[in-house]
Structure formats: structure tokens, C-alpha cells
């Protein structure tokens, strides 16, 4: 029981934090706006670029990887981020390797049973991105063992 209580307390704490953070962000934004529009108030030296950096930071790409989701950079990336990572993690996307036909079937299944919205023209962008960046790999009847970490076995 203790560990479950503890777990729920953690969830509560996280929620409280989110609320606090929202407050803090709100006031910070308000103060920044005041600084920008009423510099005569002399509210501070913080430059407005700082906030711009925070926003950019959310979708930063390093070494061809969109850091927030782990998705590969490429044409259609943000369409995938915006439509395919709301309900489930991008990890579910990148684990799967499918042809365009099977992705389209999967999207239809998500729309019919998992409350996914209509994608319209975005669907082709998404499927093209997935097929290009995460193509199926041939495995045959059994793969060889790979990435073995060798170690001395002591008695």
C-alpha cells in the first residue's frame, strides 16, 4: 500500500508542479510583455529573445534527431510530431516498420477504434515520412545474434 500511496503522491506533486509552472510562466510572460511595451518601467534587462529560445528549444534537432520525440529529421517531421505523438509516444511509431499500405490500414484502424481524427492531406505526408525514414527490414526466418557484450564469466 505504501508504495502505491507514494506513487499517487508523486503524481499529485507533479500536477501541483504543473499548476505552479503554469503560474510562473504566465507571470513571467506578463512581465516580459510589460518590459517590451513599457521599457520606461525599467522592469529588467532580460531580452525578449530568451522566450523565443525557449520555444525553439521544444523542437530542437540535433544530429538529425528531433530531441523531444526521438524522430528522425525529414520532410513531414512536424506533421508526424503534431498528429502522431499526442495520444501515444513516438516510440510506438519508431518501433514499427511498415509499408505505405499497412500504415494506411493502421491509420484507418486508429480512426475507427482509437479516436484519431481525420488527417486529410496530412495523411500522405505522414505515410511518406514513415516509409522513407523507417522502412521495413528483411529478417528472414531467424536473425543472427548481434550486439553481444562479451564478458569474462567468473565462477
Amino acid at each position: 500500500m505504501d508504495q502505491n500511496k507514494e506513487f499517487q503522491e508523486r503524481i499529485k506533486k507533479a500536477e501541483q508542479t504543473a499548476h505552479r509552472a503554469a503560474y510562473v510562466t504566465f507571470f513571467a510572460a506578463l512581465l516580459l510583455l510589460l518590459t517590451i511595451y513599457y521599457p520606461q518601467l525599467g522592469l529588467g534587462e532580460t531580452k525578449p529573445e530568451v522566450i523565443a529560445e525557449v520555444v525553439e528549444d521544444e523542437d530542437r534537432i540535433e544530429n538529425g534527431i528531433h530531441l523531444r520525440t526521438g524522430l528522425k529529421d525529414g520532410e513531414g517531421l512536424m506533421t508526424v510530431v503534431n498528429n502522431c505523438t499526442n495520444c501515444h509516444s513516438a516510440k510506438l511509431v519508431t518501433q514499427n516498420r511498415m509499408t505505405a499500405e499497412r500504415w494506411n490500414t493502421t491509420i484507418k484502424w486508429m480512426q475507427e477504434t482509437q479516436s484519431l481524427w481525420e488527417l486529410g492531406e496530412d495523411q500522405k505526408i505522414i505515410v511518406d515520412y514513415l516509409v522513407k525514414n523507417y522502412p521495413p527490414q528483411k529478417k528472414g526466418r531467424r536473425l543472427a545474434l548481434t550486439n553481444i557484450e562479451w564478458y569474462e564469466l567468473e565462477d
Binding site: A21, V24, T25, F27, A28, L31, L32, L34, T35, L43, G44, E45, T46, V50, I51
Partner: peptide, 8 residues
């Protein structure tokens, strides 16, 4: 965020 706050 804190920096903005403090500066402000």
C-alpha cells in the same frame, strides 16, 4: 523563467 522573474 526564474531569471526573467528575478530580473523583473
Amino acid at each position: 523563467v526564474l531569471g526573467t522573474f528575478a530580473a523583473a
